[in-house]
Design a protein around this nucleic acid. Structure first.
Lengths: 341, 341
DNA sequence: AGTTAGCACTCGTTCCGTCCGAGTGCTAAC
DNA sequence: GTTAGCACTCGGACGGAACGAGTGCTAACT
């Protein structure tokens, strides 16, 4: 659709705007591209690009900025992912290989590093507990009325809860039940645990229906490992330093978004595999101001995925974000293979 | 030192400024207090109060605002803590009594509620792991090379870590050692654990010095339960809505403070018992803009304290903050007694 | 002696007009 | 198809005027 020249101009506009955060005019483009064209010619082309919807003009006497369509075209056809910084990869690898570390910890560190590197915000889904497998369920009485239950998964994740002991069931009874659960259900996916425990309880306690009922309530409570969003967020101060957040209202809106967790959580859950660029998230997130997101899905265990994303203004450095996230999923693949081997 | 009238005027200025965030003038005071004095008289008194250092004038033709000294006098002599909202206390009590809950969880919820109620930020120290007592140490092998260790304390707190298995020591050996630790050290304070384990290991493995060395390294690693600041922060969006944070720079500064954790952590650690008001924290926190803090120390277990604080601009509603925190420590006392009984 | 009315003065805020510069679209010439 | 030239637009910075809230001081009042 676009001529070679138009593509060059579009690219120049996008990249310039990404760098400067200011609308870019024909003069700048004329100087910047190797096309050796006069500003007037560029102006004509830019008018065409605007008519086609790739560029926008904040007001008559300003330069052009890319529209979402323009960004999209840039991301899909013009951008070359930033070359991966070997030093960075090695630093990350050292961090992960050096010592064993639970996935959540790894994600947290990664998010912090990405935020520092990009100067954008980084969000990540906490590890999906449901698809992990049971390694051990622990039952630790604290006093007459309370106990701590601890659930350990094969990904090194630990889920714990203080629970009230059900009346009519002794701590010994419960410890016994937990023992049986461990013996029979080790290796089962957490998501399949509930019905299995159900069956097991029914089998073990068929004689005493009252106790069965109480035991079921007890295990049900502890097995609903908080569905609460486990959203990892970092780099808030970084993204706030971007010029688009010079207004306090926008900052407030962003912080609210991060605090609410839910909207971002659902977005991250629905992203497709691989590295994806989402331009203009404001409607899906219910925001008043535009936002972009570059996501990557990381495979962290057998059949377990998690998602990490870099959030910036639409004027974000997609090349860098894509480059970093590609490298990251590569590193995670290597880590996983080695970690499990 | 101050006459009754001066005290009344000072109080009126402080309370007005707290409400309006605008310098308050003589006219307003004349209308507001029941003193039935003309603005001119008030002006004379205010000039005196300024000379004594209780009030300040942003510029000649503006009203007065309290100085730190003025706030201090207000807090120490003039303020009446806000009456406690029974509904609030009951809501909190229900939350804590209703179901057993780990202290960290309780603190988090409390912080959220306080933030919503006050429209300021709330910070709290995570529970002090060191003074808690060991209930159980668990050792859960994940695969040939890694294991998860889980430490449960009497406060319902759980500390866990993925660790690498030391070469030359089998998982059985380690499980055995952990068993002995549990048998002999249950009830010991976490802070005293290290030397005790040391002795126990030496005793158990005197025959094999190489293995002893490795085991020591292993336990040492897992016993340093992250000294990382465990700072709970909530209400960022609330405090940001305060008029003093209309400038993005101040917002950024505040967010940096919350992210750094360390400065606030040390401040919270050093506060004295009871409800304390700290006016003007900027120097101790290394900030460019003023900030106040109202803290309360909460007793959460035998000999275990934690600190919670409400952060606001110096123009914060001290009466409300003090009222809420007093009520809170009362609730915690009741909770603790009941939780342990 | 304490209180108050009156008044000149200060200073931040808002409003408005001007100027400037960056950038555009259009036309006509190359 | 490209470019020089030019009139035009519009936001931003600058500066002065008007305004208003508030002060300090003096002189009069109780």
């Amino acid at each position: 659709m676009l001529t070679e020249r138009q593509r060059a101009i579009l690219q120049a506009v996008v990249e310039n705007y990404i760098r400067s955060a200011e609308p870019v005019g024909s003069r700048t483009i004329a100087r910047l591209t190797g096309l050796n064209l006069s500003p007037a010619t560029i102006r004509n082309e830019m008018a065409d690009l605007e008519a086609m919807g790739y560029l926008e003009q904040p007001h008559t006497s300003a330069g052009r900025i890319p529209s979402y369509k323009g960004y999209r075209y840039y991301v899909d056809h013009l951008l070359t992912p930033e070359a991966i910084d070997r030093a960075w990869v090695e630093a990350l690898e050292r961090r992960f290989y050096a010592r064993s570390v639970a996935i959540e910890e790894a994600l947290r560190k990664t998010a912090a590093i990405l935020a520092e590197l990009t100067h954008y915000a980084v969000v990540a889904l906490g590890p999906e507990v449901f698809t992990a497998r049971l390694v051990k369920l622990e039952f630790v009485p604290l006093d007459e009325a309370r106990a701590v239950t601890v659930l350990v998964t094969d990904t090194g994740h630990v889920e714990h809860k203080v629970v009230e002991l059900p009346q009519g069931l002794s701590a010994e009874d419960l410890a016994h039940l937990v023992e049986r659960i461990n013996a029979e259900l080790k290796g089962a996916a957490i998501s399949t645990l509930a019905p299995k425990i159900h069956r097991l309880l029914a089998q073990a306690m068929e004689s005493n229906r009252e106790a069965l009922f109480r035991a079921e309530r007890f295990f049900e409570a502890l097995l609903h490992p908080r569905e609460e969003a486990r959203l990892i967020v970092d780099g808030t101060t970084e993204i706030i330093a971007q010029p688009e957040f010079r207004s306090v209202d926008r900052v407030r809106e962003l912080l609210k978004l991060f605090e609410a967790e839910e909207p971002l959580f659902t977005v991250l859950r629905q992203v497709e595999d691989g590295v994806q660029v989402h331009i203009g998230l404001e409607d899906v997130l219910g925001l008043g101001s535009p936002l972009s997101l570059v996501t990557a899905t990381l495979t962290v265990g057998e059949g377990q995925r998690t998602t990490i994303g870099i959030i910036g203004p639409p004027r974000m450095d997609y090349a860098k974000a894509i480059g970093l996230l590609s490298a990251l999923s590569f590193i995670f693949d290597a880590w996983r293979e080695r970690g499990l081997g």
